[in-house]
Design a protein around this nucleic acid. Structure first.
Lengths: 157, 157
DNA sequence: GCCCAGTTACTCGGATACCACTTGTCCGAGTCACCGTGG
DNA sequence: CCACGGTGACTCGGACAAGTGGTATCCGAGTAACTGGGC
């Protein structure tokens, strides 16, 4: 899986902690975790295309959350970064070569693909059931000072 | 996801349909679906290392199933081909740069990683619950002639 | 006829290139803030 | 003092390279079957 997913998740949480009142540039978000600025910018663009964050150009511009964390799921972020394609894409090799399935088995979906899709659906269901607000709650319980440290750093930057 | 997974799954099913009495070479398995022989051989080697199939060299050699399909799950095959690593590997970026989580939040696992791992566990659970025998049953119901066609082709090859 | 050793051909197995995609970087279009000027 | 136009700098956004892992291939080590000869 693309590692940009982790960057995007933490960036969303950071944006929420900073507050929705002001936009944050990709450079500052990147600096906070020592990430390559331009590449994180690329991921944030993907989030913007997905409607998870909004981007404003010009001075005092940057990114901010498009909606509260309660309405953003892990699935949203993963889909925004990874794309909508399924991980297991059936190439239908059973239809190639002499082994092409006979007796009207072509139209019906491949039994393997079906089971893999079912498993992937369970994965997506879990991701869709977990909002970033849930994660924020757990993170604040574990590292109580993280939020304040972050706000202080972004104000003094 | 690696496309070799699909090849391995179909090859296992084909081996089961052919019968356990004789070994089948990678070349014939590949020819049946018009796949590159050497590369499929590589995937079969991975299955052999995982103990899913056994390989015998020399004339009349080849691959055969190490155990019946009832005891082979989708998870086994996926792990054999893809490796045991999780798809989402947390790089712990929260510990980098000025944003390193303070107040003893380091030892506890990342909340994001935890949720992602939970979702992935659901995926693995589904894969582990589905045996290749289940898939075979469904495939035979959809394409009743597939098994006989396959056996005929492999006998006349 | 039976046994055995040598040869042979066939198999897997790992070492070796090729290619696509992820990762990483750069510069330009657009935009808002700021500043100086005029009323 | 206030309004306004011009300038400037800062932002995102997409186009452009580099590195890594998946994809594909080849050749060698090893083995079991086959063949021919000897008993």
């Amino acid at each position: 899986m693309n590692e940009g997913v982790e960057w995007a998740l933490h960036s969303c949480l950071n944006l929420a902690w900073i507050g929705e009142d002001r936009a944050v540039t990709a450079a500052r978000l990147a600096a906070y975790h020592a990430l390559p600025t331009a590449y994180l910018n690329k991921q944030l663009q993907a989030l913007a295309r997905a409607g998870i964050v909004t981007s404003t150009p010009g001075p005092k511009g940057g990114f901010r959350l498009a909606r509260p964390l309660e309405r953003i799921t892990l699935m949203d972020v993963v889909t925004a970064i990874e794309g909508p394609d399924e991980a297991f894409r059936c190439a239908e090799i059973r239809k190639q070569g002499p082994g092409e399935t006979p007796h009207t088995g072509h139209e019906l979906p491949c039994a393997f693909a079906e089971s893999m899709a079912k498993a992937e659906l369970a994965w997506r269901r879990e991701l869709a059931a977990c909002t970033l607000a849930d994660v924020r709650k757990r993170a604040e319980k574990r590292a109580p000072g993280a939020r304040d440290t972050l706000r202080r750093w972004f104000e003094n930057s």
